[in-house]
Amino acid sequence: METNGLGGRPAGHSVMVEVLRLQESRPPRRGVARIFGANPLAPEARSWFWGALGEQRVARVLAALGPEWHVLHSIPVGKRGSDIDHVVVGPAGVFTLNTKHHRGANVWVAGRTLMVNGQRTPYLRNSAHEAARASALLTRSAGYPVEVRAVVVLVAPRKVTTRSRAEGAVVVTDSVLRRWLARQPRTQSDDDAARLAGLAAQPSTWGADGPAGDPLQTQASFEALRAEVVRAQGRRLVWFLAGCAGVVATALGSLPHGLFAR
């Protein structure tokens, strides 16, 4: 991974910032709520929280690529808060990855349509726009045409049904992403890839002001929140299992005496 400029941003940085901002208005859990494992996440922060986890999961997949690949995360673009989840530069060229966390969902793809659990999404259109914008900005910075391919990465879906090839972006799951990238034909030298990665790591390339806040502090605060969420889930599970055990004990106690006697 790049270590200069934008290279220090952790995966999901922009999303984590939004989660923490939304959490500021939620009062801390106290007493019974904490004991029974009430969800510590503000309702409006929950989709952002899972989005951040999805980007982190994809980052772990990308970290397994060889040293000839360069990976940047949460790249800010322009002045209006837009960002690209992941920019990947390597022997096969440049890719913008749009991560979508849909654990257990059914996804249907055909042409320009991508539906999640029967609901149309703008993922293909948005990803194609994102790649075109990245191509224009990298071309301007590099001084020669830079092609950028759009990829939608689906994290942990239950099933993906492809009726016809997606238009505007490639659609892959996180489980096959690394293999898919590694299979793509070489389009540039390792030196050219390293140069492009260096340009991609500069905030000026994207017309951005650079990282907002301290990425390390943001990640630390998010991980503390994540640990709190996991503890709450554990408490809810304990109470659920205790309830099930109580129901079973009550049912057994109501059976006729000696039913199981020989």
Rank of each mutant, 00 (worst) to 15 (best):
W206S: 15
G143M: 05
P122M: 06
Q219A: 09
R26D: 10
R140N: 06
G8M: 14
G246A: 02
L97V: 08
L20R: 02
A227L: 10
R125T: 06
S204L: 11
P157M: 09
A150F: 06
R125V: 08
V88N: 00
V153I: 13
R158K: 09
R34C: 09
D190R: 07
A249P: 02
F36M: 15
A166D: 03
R236N: 00
G168S: 13
L137R: 15
P185H: 08
T218I: 15
I84S: 03
L124E: 00
V88S: 01
D214W: 08
P67S: 06
Q188H: 10
A220W: 01
L114M: 14
A105Q: 06
G12T: 12
A142D: 02
L22D: 04
R21T: 15
A92S: 12
V153M: 06
W239S: 10
A142V: 13
M115L: 06
D190N: 11
A105W: 06
A220K: 15
W180Y: 10
G66V: 10
R133S: 11
A92D: 07
W69S: 01
A42S: 06
T162P: 11
G31C: 14
A208V: 12
P91M: 07
M1Q: 12
A52V: 08
N117D: 09
L53W: 13
A245S: 09
G198Q: 13
T113H: 13
G258V: 03
D83A: 10
Q202W: 04
V171C: 14
V116P: 10
V17S: 14
G168F: 03
L22F: 04
N39I: 08
N39A: 11
G258W: 15
S254I: 11
S74R: 00
G243C: 15
N117A: 03
A197Q: 01
R34A: 12
G198Y: 03
H129T: 14
A261Y: 04
A166I: 00
T218L: 04
R195H: 05
V160Y: 10
F95T: 00
A150T: 05
V229T: 03
F95I: 02
A261T: 14
Q233Y: 06
R46F: 14
V152R: 03
G93Q: 12
L255N: 05
Q202G: 13
R30T: 05
R186G: 13
I75F: 00
I35C: 09
I75G: 00
W239R: 15
R186N: 07
V238H: 05
G258M: 12
G8P: 11
S204G: 08
A201Q: 02
S204P: 07
A197D: 11
T99I: 01
V172E: 14
A142C: 12
G234W: 02
T113G: 14
W108T: 09
R46N: 15
G81K: 04
P145S: 09
A92K: 08
R179C: 13
A11C: 12
V94G: 10
P215A: 05
M16K: 09
A52F: 12
D191Y: 02
R21V: 07
R60D: 14
A201K: 01
G90L: 04
L41N: 02
L22G: 05
V153L: 08
T173V: 05
A38P: 07
R262M: 14
A194Y: 01
Q219V: 13
R236Q: 01
T187Y: 13
K159S: 12
G66H: 14
P91C: 10
